[in-house]
Amino acid sequence: MSRLASFRGPSAPSSSPVPKANPNTTPKGKGKANSNPKSPSSPGRNVRGGSVEPMSPPAVSGGVLETTYHRKLRSMLLEMRTCCRTWEDLIDHDGFRAIQRLVDARTDLDNQLAQVPGGGLPRSRIVGPKLASMEERIRELDTVIAKLRKQFAKMNSIVDSLEALLSDAHKTKGWAWVSQEPLWTTWTLEKFVTEIPGLLAPHRRSLDEHAGLVEEVRSHDTPFAAAKEAVLRWAAPGTLEDEGWDARWEDLCDVEVDKWDPR
C-alpha cells in the first residue's frame, strides 16, 4: 500500500511549494515576552519599596508661608532684643559694680586717714594706691557709658533697617499687604515698624541719666553723701522697668512672631 494512502484515499498534492524553514526564526507565540519599560515616576511622587508616595508640601510656619520680609523682621527684632538686654547688663552689673567700688574706695580712704593722729603722717602708703583704684573705677564707668552709646547707635540702625524693609515691601507687595495683612497673628509689618522706635526714647533718657551720674562722682572731692546718693540712683529702677524690652515687647513677640525664641 502506498504511504500516501489514507483512510479516505490518497490526498491531492498542493500546488504551492512549502517554504523552507529558517532555523533562526522563533516560532510565533513561543518567543520571550517583551517586558514593558518602567514608566518614569512623576515629579510629584516618590517611589519607595515598590509603592508610590506623594511628596510632602512645602514647609510653612504656623500655617503662614513666610517671605523674606517675615524672616528679616524676626531677625531684626531678635537683634533689637540683644541690644536691650546688653544695655541692662551694662547698667545692672558693670556700671553698678564700678560706681559702688569707687564710692567704697573713697570711703575706705577717708576712714584710714581719720585714724592718723592729728598732724602726723600715715605709716604706710595709703593715698597713692587708693587714688589709683579710684581712677580705674572712673575709667570703667567711662567704658560703660561708651558701650551704652554704641548700643544706642545700633538700636537706631535697626530702626533705619526696619523702615527700609517696610519701604521695600511696599514697592514689591503693595500698601495693602504691609498695612492690612497680618504677618503671623494680628500685627502687620507696618505695625511692627511704627511701634519699635518707641524703645529709643526711654533708652536715650537712661543714657543721659547714667552719664550724668558718672559726672557727679568723677571728682575726688565729691562729698560722701552726694556719692552715696548717686549709687542709690544708679541702682534704682528707671524708665526701662516700664518701657524697656521685657516690659513691652517680649510677651508680645512670643504671641505675634512665629518661631520666636523666648529667652
Rank of each mutant, 00 (worst) to 15 (best):
S2Y: 04
S2R: 05
S6E: 07
P10A: 09
A12R: 15
N24Y: 13
N24R: 15
T26W: 05
K30A: 10
K32M: 07
A33V: 14
S35H: 06
K38I: 09
S41G: 13
S41K: 08
S42P: 07
P43F: 02
P43A: 01
G44S: 14
N46D: 08
G50P: 02
G50E: 02
S51H: 12
P54A: 12
V60M: 08
V60T: 13
L65C: 11
T68F: 12
R71A: 10
S75P: 04
T82H: 11
C83L: 05
C84R: 02
T86N: 15
E88L: 13
D89V: 15
D89S: 12
D89N: 14
L90I: 03
I99D: 00
R101P: 01
Q115I: 00
I138W: 07
R149I: 09
F152D: 14
A153W: 05
E163G: 12
L165T: 12
K171W: 08
T172G: 04
Q180H: 09
L183C: 04
W184S: 07
T188W: 05
I196C: 13
L199S: 03
A201T: 11
E209F: 15
G212C: 05
G212P: 08
T222S: 01
A227Q: 01
K228A: 03
V231Q: 01
W234P: 00
A235V: 03
P237I: 00
T239P: 08
D242I: 11
E243C: 10
D251A: 14
D254N: 07
R263L: 09
